[in-house]
């Protein structure tokens, strides 16, 4: 009754609320942990220490170069048709405006097709606002990640995006974006749903909208570290079942949800097993990815560095879309692999966590590894409100629940233990 033993210990026993309490201590102590910052490195050292405090000492770090983009001053003022402050968050690695800012008329597009159909002379010198209505993150995030390049190709002086979120209390949501070497780099930022919709209404009425955008930032590279913790298997220690989350966060909010929750349930898995003296046949490896937010930098480094031993990865898991009530797993793998995972998930029907969702590319960091053919899964959870808080000042401990984190930690630990202990490898 291994599964029951784990759940009793985590939800009723000595580990009850431990995941939440440790996450809260961590988040309160360090706050936001942007890529390349000293606070991120200090937080990595802290995670290593609290793991050693649990008498788990098989820990290595791997250094890599990461972006260090520092947000400085950001201000947008609407000058026409009336004066208004526009709440703003620059997008990751955005270039600065000139000191006096960029003052220009706004042209609004709800999709890239409209942009492509519009003559360059109608866009040249203007500020482009993309205002897609949020459907799913996957469908709309391209307007954040590629908007600056698409707008610059048409001669825009800056680009803005309606925050990629389904709900807002005038909250801008930051995020990554990617420049192309072949087009000019223009300043780019997110504005709130409310302000984007206001500008859209003016625009549709034929009223000229003029903004002044002032943004400054700096950019350099620094050294950071992926953290790898092994809880060695007793029969096949070379074979790995990986649980993971990313330790870096955006510079706004505190990264309690994104991805503090995923980080701490992946820390908890070997800790819980060690405390219960449960040691599976294969090794359970916890990885704390660095620099996920600016482009999965840590994951790419790990995949490249460990490529020649990737045949040892039996299964890889990640939680980076919330640690609310667990519902099951989002699984990539062949049919036999999915059948084995589905059979394991049947053990969790009593907590309503037995759903298997099929996906070719679950997770964020682990997608880098899954796309090489390694089976993997991300946590399927009741995250309907995840994008309310994502990449905002609202990503704080108040989003997290001790009871839900206990369920996630127990589920994550039990699933990884069973996969690591059954007689059959997960087939590829």
């Amino acid at each position: 009754d291994v599964k029951e033993e784990i759940f009793r210990y985590v939800t009723e026993g000595d580990f009850k609320s431990k995941t939440y309490d440790e996450l809260a201590k961590f988040v309160d102590k360090f706050g936001a942990r942007p890529s390349g910052s000293q606070v991120l490195e200090d937080s990595i050292d802290y995670m290593i220490q609290i793991t050693k405090d649990e008498d788990i000492n098989d820990i290595v770090t791997e250094e890599l170069e990461v972006p260090h983009w520092i947000r400085e001053q950001e201000k947008i003022t609407m000058l026409e048709p009336r004066s208004k402050h526009i709440a703003v968050l620059g997008l990751g690695k955005s270039v600065s405006t000139p000191p006096e800012g960029i003052t220009a008329e706004v042209i609004v597009f709800s999709n890239f097709d409209q942009l492509a159909e519009t003559p360059r002379q109608d866009i040249d010198g203007k500020i482009v606002l993309f205002d897609p209505i949020f459907t799913t993150y996957a469908e709309t995030v391209v307007y954040r990640s590629q908007g600056a390049v698409k707008a610059a190709e048409k001669g825009a002086t800056a680009s803005l995006v309606r925050s990629i979120a389904p709900f807002s209390i005038n909250t801008p949501h930051t995020g990554s974006q990617y420049y192309s070497d072949s087009v000019p780099k223009i300043p780019t930022a997110a504005i709130t749903l409310e302000d984007a919709d206001l500008i859209r209404r003016f625009y549709d009425r034929g009223e000229k909208v003029v903004l002044n955008i002032k943004m400054t930032s700096s950019y350099e590279t620094k050294i950071s570290r992926n953290t790898i913790i092994d809880y060695k298997g007793i029969e096949n220690p070379e074979k790995l079942v990986i649980v993971s989350g990313h330790i870096d966060s955006w510079d706004v909010g505190q990264g309690a949800m994104d991805d503090g929750g995923g980080l701490f349930i992946s820390w908890a898995a070997p800790v819980i097993l060690k405390r219960l003296n449960l040691r599976p046949k294969r090794t359970i490896r916890s990885i704390f990815w660095t620099a996920e937010e600016l482009g999965l930098i840590g994951a790419y480094d790990y995949e490249e560095r460990h490529r020649n031993e990737s045949n040892n990865i039996n299964f890889i898991m990640e939680s980076d879309e919330g640690t609310f009530s667990p519902l099951g797993l989002v699984v990539a793998g062949n049919e036999e692999a999915r059948c084995i995972i589905a059979e394991i998930l049947k053990l969790f029907e009593s907590i309503n966590a037995s759903t298997l969702v099929e996906s070719d590319s679950p997770g964020s960091d682990i997608a880098v590894i899954v796309k090489t053919g390694i089976p993997g899964a991300s946590l399927h959870n009741a995250n309907e409100k995840y994008f309310w808080f994502h990449h905002t000042e609202g990503d704080t401990m108040n989003v997290e629940s001790p009871e839900e984190l206990d369920l996630c930690a127990a589920f994550w630990t039990a699933v990884s233990y069973i996969i690591a202990d059954i007689s059959s490898d997960i087939p590829r």
């Binding site: 049919e335 036999e336 059948c339 084995i340 059979e343 394991i344 049947k346 298997l356 099929e358 059959s424």
Partner: peptide, 26 residues
């Protein structure tokens, strides 16, 4: 993403021994 409606072939792909082994963790 789509919720797996059915994994019909699981009974043929997985041995009874493996199914019973997994069930034993409950």
């Amino acid at each position: 993403k789509s919720v797996a409606k059915s994994l019909n072939k699981c009974q043929t792909l997985l041995s009874d021994d493996l199914i019973n082994e997994i069930a034993s963790y409950k």
